[in-house]
Design a protein around this nucleic acid. Structure first.
Length: 491
RNA sequence: GGCGACGUACCCAAGUGGCAAGGGGGAGGUCUGCAAAACCUUUAUUCAGCGGUUCGAAUCCGCUCGUCGCCUCCA
């Protein structure tokens, strides 16, 4: 298994610290606003990575944190006239509402910064004792900064040179700091700000220290995988490395995994540019599975351009998938009553051959730095082969068994990608909802019954009238030997 | 200014030394009461451009052009 490691700049063989176990930590969100589709990408990517480790049989501990104390949260509290912790609570709730709707599994441990204050203080004290950090008086309290020049490896993750950074520093020079690149481990609390008691008086944690404290507490001093969005490489992860490794003298993480951005008109989607869509805006128009396939159709490190066309493509692909499942179900359902059990040997052999290769190919794709785009490609190759087989009009228990085997493989692989877990019927009902089609399943069935009577009487005009009526509403009918089924039209 | 990434068909997207995956769309066909779905054929002699290395390059090297990211909070 190979994983691209930001630290080494290449794909490295994955060797866990402890055989058969993986500890991974992904940076979550700062809870001061609704999540946008960029947060969704990161969540989807690390959800699937953790699923794949489990698929491979690793005993996996996945930690994803909430930053629930921070300048932006305090500012938002001031703007809206509520307390900072009320802001954090609200947006944690909203986070879960969005991520649950997106179908993202909960991480094994979802720690909050404010619940690990004492662990952070311990790390900061150790850093001061080892001469890597210094306290500075600020009003009645003290702030603590990490002295970047005491950590020789500073810049090793982001490949930055300390001198270049200082030369081109855009950060304001802060008189209190010994060096402009030093960063806050602990911030003295100003009047009206939230605070915790500490050896440096009243204060609150800096941004980076929480991840060090929580990763060590919940996984260990060295973790297998540390991940997050590519924008966290510098300064966040660089600073985490400095403070963690200076504290323990051990490597902080073995593999650094960073997902690429979602872009709008080729530009990074971000709060500051204002060019973002929230998860709930998108889920008001597209089904969650569509968003997940859209994200997984590209490699996780590539930038992906967000657009209506892209989501539409993903929607069509999923519809193709479920249409094929429906065809398989028809063959399986008719197997018992099939008078002539038959199967073309060549067609069956072709499908069996592809089925034998399917799981190994999936693993080969995912083992190569989680290449979900290729994995999805293999799924659709199998779908095509299944359709070829079904086109030969197979029947009987042997054909049914072969298709059941295909369904089982697809279910396992799909489950690992968190895709294709529903029935065709559930998919179409979900589409009624996503596309806001004002019809219920029962209502559609009533129309189908009406049309069946017309067709039995060979009243083609009346039958076509029903078809047209439903077509206008966005429903397509498919006449088959044993009845008519409906689908939501993808336009 | 420093560091880094990317440029593959009408659109999206894999492929990083040996015949250019997959999805969407377009065109033609089979099937069908009419449709839809599905399948078949077709849609890149070519991978931003120019050189170089090689028996062989989308893939490696160099240059040019273009786009984007990080260097400040960011997934």
């Amino acid at each position: 298994m190979k994983i691209y490691n930001t630290m080494t700049g290449r794909k490295d063989d994955f060797v866990p610290l402890a055989t058969g176990r993986v500890g991974m930590y992904a940076c979550g969100v700062t809870v001061y606003d609704y999540c946008h589709i960029g947060h969704a990408r990161s969540a989807i990517v690390f959800d699937v990575i953790s699923r794949y480790f489990r698929y491979k049989g690793f005993q996996t501990t996945f930690v994803r944190n909430f930053t629930d104390i921070d300048d932006k949260i305090i500012r938002r509290a001031g703007e809206t006239g509520v307390t900072w912790d009320a802001v954090a609570r609200k947006y944690i709730d909203e986070y879960y509402r969005d991520m649950d709707a997106l179908g993202i599994a909960r991480a094994d441990i979802e720690p909050k910064a404010t619940e690990h204050i004492s662990e952070m203080i311990d790390v900061v004290q150790t850093l001061i004792a080892k001469g890597h950090a210094y306290a500075v008086q600020e009003g009645e309290n003290e702030s603590v900064y990490f002295a970047v020049d005491t950590f020789g490896d500073y810049g090793k993750l982001s490949k930055k040179d300390l001198h270049d950074l200082q030369a081109g520093a855009r950060v304001c020079v802060d008189e209190r700091k010994k060096s402009p690149m030093d960063f806050a481990l602990w911030k003295a609390s100003k009047e009206g700000e939230p605070w915790w008691e500490s050896p440096w008086g009243k204060g609150r944690p800096g941004w980076h220290i929480e991840c060090t404290a929580m990763a060590m507490r919940h996984i260990g001093e060295t973790i297998d995988i540390h991940g997050g969005g590519a924008d966290l490489v510098f300064p966040h992860h660089e600073n985490e490395i400095a403070q963690s490794e200076a504290c323990t003298g051990k490597p902080f993480a073995k593999y650094w995994v960073h997902n690429g951005f979602i872009t709008i008109d080729k530009e990074k989607m971000s709060k500051s540019l204002g060019n973002f869509f929230t998860i709930r805006e998108i889920l008001g128009v597209y089904d969650a599975e569509v968003v997940r396939l859209f994200v997984l159709s590209s490699h996780y490190r590539s930038p992906i351009e967000f657009s209506r066309d892209q989501l539409h493509d993903a929607e069509s692909s999923i519809d193709r998938y479920y249409s094929t499942v429906a065809r398989m179900d028809d063959v399986i359902a008719l197997a018992l009553e099939a008078k002539s059990a038959k199967m073309q040997p060549a067609a069956a052999a072709a499908l069996e051959n592809m089925l034998d290769r399917f799981r190994p190919q999936f693993e080969e794709a995912m083992d190569d730095d989680f290449n979900t785009a290729i994995a999805v490609g293999h799924i659709f190759e199998l779908i095509r082969e299944i359709n070829r087989f079904v086109d030969t009009k197979p029947g009987g228990p042997e054909a049914a068994a072969l298709l059941r085997k295909a369904k089982e493989s697809l279910r396992t692989v799909g489950g690992t990608l968190n895709l294709f877990g529903r029935t065709p019927q559930q998919w179409n009902v979900a589409l009624l909802c996503a596309k806001k089609i004002p019809l219920t399943e029962d209502g559609i069935q009533a129309k189908l019954k009406e049309r069946r009577t017309a067709r039995e009487n060979k009243d083609w005009a009346a039958a076509d009238a029903v078809r047209n009526e439903l077509d206008v509403a966005g429903i397509v009918l498919e006449d088959k030997k044993d009845g008519t089924t409906w689908r939501v039209k993808i336009v």
